[in-house]
């Protein structure tokens, strides 16, 4: 190609490069939207035409019994997750200590509590009096198990201790994800083991721990409904109590479903905020460029 030819080609290409741009057609996306909307309409129409008494739904949505159930569900979620996080973190730390006995205790715990269905665990705690009629310190304190093992305590222990086994594994994974160099740096400035864990390892493990624990939190909201089986007056139990009397099953289940969705929506947004908080130092922040301050090299 001659020099002129080359220049001409370059010129043409410059024109092409400046052409107006058009996005790919979004027909597929439109088609998807149509299907999705059609499906939604089908479901909504079904609910409207179906044998649902919407005024009953409205009547019970803010009723005291439902509200009490909602409060108990939320409060039990926090209680059980509190137990799960404290016990689970403890088990994870036991797992990584050099103490072989503690390691095995932790392994056994996880094996045991992860291996039994939650509902069964609730029944076990609730009926603990069948094995240990009294609890306490021999000769000092003794109480009748049946008096203290209320539905509330049985639910908190049953759900909390079981979830702790899962939390333990997540926390352990988080701890392992922190670079060993961080531990060495902390030790090299004279930190004690407890300080290394609390100030260096766990805060950085949080980034890995928070998303799955957030999921557990959301699961726990729904898991509390299992406690209806041992008469703990959480939301499902309370709406069941109502529909056993008035027979409005679907209406009251819709009321419960509505509140579960509200609670979970709130928790999801809180989870996002907590994740952002613990990601500090890992997300690159844009800093203004400054002229480099070069030093003479010694070599």
């Amino acid at each position: 190609m001659t020099a002129e030819g080359l220049t001409a080609a370059v010129d043409t290409r410059s024109q092409v490069a400046a052409f107006e741009r058009k996005k790919r057609p979004v027909i597929v996306q439109w088609a998807t939207a149509v299907v999705a909307i059609a499906f939604l309409v089908f479901v909504v129409v079904g609910f409207i035409q179906g044998n649902i008494n919407w005024s009953t739904v409205g009547q019970y949505l803010f009723s005291p019994a439902v509200f009490e159930g909602l409060l108990n569900t939320v409060w039990m979620t926090f209680l059980a997750m509190g137990i799960a996080i404290v016990v689970g973190t403890g088990m994870a730390i036991m797992r990584i200590t050099p103490n072989a006995v503690l390691q095995r205790v932790s392994k056994f715990y996880i094996w045991f509590f992860r291996g039994i269905p939650q509902l069964l665990q609730l029944y076990l705690w609730y009926n603990l009096a069948l094995i240990f009629p009294t609890l306490g310190i021999p000769g000092v304190l003794s109480v009748n198990t049946i008096d203290i093992m209320t539905p509330l305590l049985a639910t908190a222990l049953g759900l909390g201790l079981c979830q702790a086994a899962y939390v333990a594994e997540v926390v352990r994974a988080g701890i392992i994800s922190v670079d060993q160099g961080q531990v060495e740096a902390a030790e090299s400035i004279g930190m004690k083991y407890s300080q290394v864990l609390a100030r260096v390892v766990l805060p950085q493990a949080m980034r890995v721990i928070i998303p799955p624990v957030g999921n557990y939190f959301i699961s726990m909201v729904k898991l509390t409904s299992l406690a209806s089986a041992i008469q703990f007056s959480e939301m499902l139990y309370n709406v069941q109590t109502i529909y056993f009397v008035n027979g409005q099953v679907m209406e009251l289940l819709i009321v419960a479903a509505f509140w579960y969705l509200i609670v979970i929506t709130v928790l999801t947004s809180v989870q996002g905020r907590i994740e952002t908080y613990f990601s500090k130092g890992t997300v690159r922040t844009v800093t203004k460029k400054k002229p480099k301050n070069r030093h003479k090299t010694g070599a």
Binding site: G181, A185, A186, Q204, K280, G281
Partner: peptide, 8 residues
């Protein structure tokens, strides 16, 4: 590898 505390 410096080992600065990444969260601080």
């Amino acid at each position: 590898r410096f080992n600065l505390f990444g969260h601080r």
